[in-house]
Design a protein around this nucleic acid. Structure first.
Lengths: 356, 356
DNA sequence: CTCTTAATTTTACGCGCGTAAAATATTAAT
DNA sequence: ATTAATATTTTACGCGCGTAAAATTAAGAG
């Protein structure tokens, strides 16, 4: 049987029926030694061109691929990068994850993305899992306030980690995010120029961004000579639309908004408030005939399609993704980047749409 | 130094400074043999209670965890499950993924979720990566039409696979999804009872669901004695809101809708169309004063918060997730489930909101 | 106390690969 | 052809664990 194999019709690349069990066998088939094959798989350019061709020719005849577990058990640096986001159903994080994944692949790493789905217990589980994966590095957007600070801190001590989006003081080697103290004043300034100074609509802060945005709002209003007015609503977890809708309804009914202009701490909250306003027959927008203006923050991918389209501040998704990965790669290379924690903040861009 | 260790203050469970290098060392510390420790880690209940206590006591003193790569290299069944979704930024898939992940964990597996982000190239990359992970099984919601059919088929031959949401004929052992031929007629019936029979608004079908929904629409309209009217729009990829908005604008301007009631092939498309109607100053809803009704399909998590809230058909997320995992576990256990491909379809539930 | 049974240890092997050092072969230049 | 500079092979070891079979021990029943 086997000695007729060479005459049997092949069904295309990698379709040979002879299964290769390991690199030893594959090396034999391609006429090189196993260490040479090993070298090839780690870097095809590290072997002589003629050798490379021999190996690649064999690869078209046999569908062999090195066993990742055997590789990772022996390699010093495991070519895996972990990505952890708090809530992947939030398109903001989905989009960031997509960008980060792509850049990791381009750099020769295999990304593994995990979502905490808003649960700190899950966050701990994920970190635990990631620890045993011994990845080259990890990019994590922590849940924030509800994170198990000790768990995250311990993790950062053991694994090269870059925090993004949501910072935790004194944890991790690096942080990459947005500068709320630039973006919020930008929006406040715009709102003041175009109508009544805004009040600030926020949920209990699930992460430091929420806190910073409130502080930035208060600072900006004070600086512009207006009285800040913060409306904190109930609600927990990551159901921002739900909270914005439920509490928005109540506050509209009870006439609790202190201005006809509401700045929400993020777009998802604004989307909930838009729904509440619609349900309350209140026309939202900057045009005449409208009695309420609503603005958000983040430029959530769906904000263009709300009714009316949402005026907001765009975070620089690409810059954040790029810089995060870039920084992690430096970390992995061994550049400690000095002793103190390094923080990179990008600026937001005003996106003027019809809602405010 | 080391001989004083026992007197040094411990900082809590697992905080001992003596690093354990491998199971050999750990077994020695806990006073059992390595194979016994190995047995314990595979199933704590498989060892004598007194032995178990000895091991667990040692676990509080040393932070040791078995090396996953060494484990997976030797184990017959790797306790990992792959989950592949076409587009994780679509909250429908984010929600399904969350449910599936949880059930996998409960069953003792480690889920790894991957999103194709709408790219078939990425889908192939992911399948390739998954193949080398040798997971116990994989749950995949294929991209659909743009999938590399051969790649998916070959993958299904090598790895126990359950398809969900989007079926590919004759591929995989099992499919779990929704019955479009029940849900669409349900919605058509409702729309006919409450107003004008709907026209059908769809994108070029990215997956079989889109096709089936159109067919189901045509069938239902015919059965109810109405003339079906399908409006296919341009657009590619997964930017449904974008396409619904752009093409919706054009069709409203050119008065192309053949009915004042529009059934969209999914909620995301409906969201885009809602935005287009708003921008065109057309009031949408079932109430008087409204000139257009819009309905969707899926009960996308944000559909409750559109303006007006979207009337739609809810897919049974939990049932789909549960059954998918359940089926996969059977497959992994060795229940081939017979020769022919097994398909499970769940029914949709009408969700009446203000948009139609 | 003896016997039976279940749990554990011992012994031994293998998984598939990385990696280092020394020996050898190849290549290009002199 | 000789030499020097690479590339490759050989040799040898180790990674951390699963697993199987045989030998030993412990627990429970009589």
């Amino acid at each position: 049987m086997q000695d007729h194999d060479a005459q049997m019709t092949k069904r295309g690349p990698g379709m040979g029926r002879e299964k290769i069990r390991n690199m030893e066998e594959f090396a034999a088939k391609s006429g090189v030694s196993r260490p040479t094959a090993s070298k090839y798989f780690n870097d095809p350019n590290s072997v002589r061109l003629s050798t490379r061709r021999r190996i690649e020719e064999a690869l078209t005849r046999y569908d062999y691929r090195p066993n990742v577990y055997a590789i990772n058990q022996n390699r010093r640096l495991i070519k895996t990068v972990g990505i952890v986001v708090p809530y992947v159903a939030d398109p903001f994080f989905a989009e960031i994850a997509r960008n980060i994944e792509r850049r990791c692949i381009d750099a020769g790493f295999s990304p593994s993305t995990f979502s905490c789905h808003g649960s700190s217990a899950r966050e701990v589980e994920i970190l635990d899992h990631l620890r045993s994966m011994r990845p080259a590095g990890v990019l994590i957007a922590p849940l924030g306030r509800s994170s198990d600070r000790e768990a995250v801190e311990a993790f950062c001590r053991d694994v090269p980690t870059v925090l993004f989006d949501s910072n935790i003081e004194d944890i991790g080697a690096t942080f990459v995010g947005s500068n709320n103290f630039q973006s919020i004043p930008l929006m406040v300034d715009y709102l003041c120029r175009t109508g009544q100074p805004p009040c600030f609509f926020e949920m209990p802060p699930v992460n430091p961004n929420a806190n910073k945005r409130r502080e930035a709002y208060i600072g900006a209003m004070t600086q512009f000579g207006h009285e800040p007015s913060v409306l904190r609503i109930d609600g927990q977890g990551w159901d921002f639309e739900q909270a914005g809708h439920a509490e928005g309804l109540r506050m509209l009914r009870e006439d609790r908004f202190t201005s006809n202009t509401v700045l929400c701490s993020n777009d998802r909250l604004a989307i909930g408030l838009l729904a509440a306003a619609y349900e309350s027959d209140i026309r939202v927008g900057i045009n005449k005939g409208c009695s309420l203006r609503i603005a958000g923050h983040d430029d959530h991918p769906f904000s263009r399609f709300t009714c009316p389209p949402l005026t907001t501040v765009a975070q620089n998704y690409e810059a954040i993704s790029d810089r995060s990965v870039e920084t992690l790669l430096h970390l992995v290379e061994g550049d400690d980047g000095g002793d103190s924690k390094q923080e990179t903040l990008f600026e937001g861009k005003l996106v003027m749409r019809a809602s405010a």
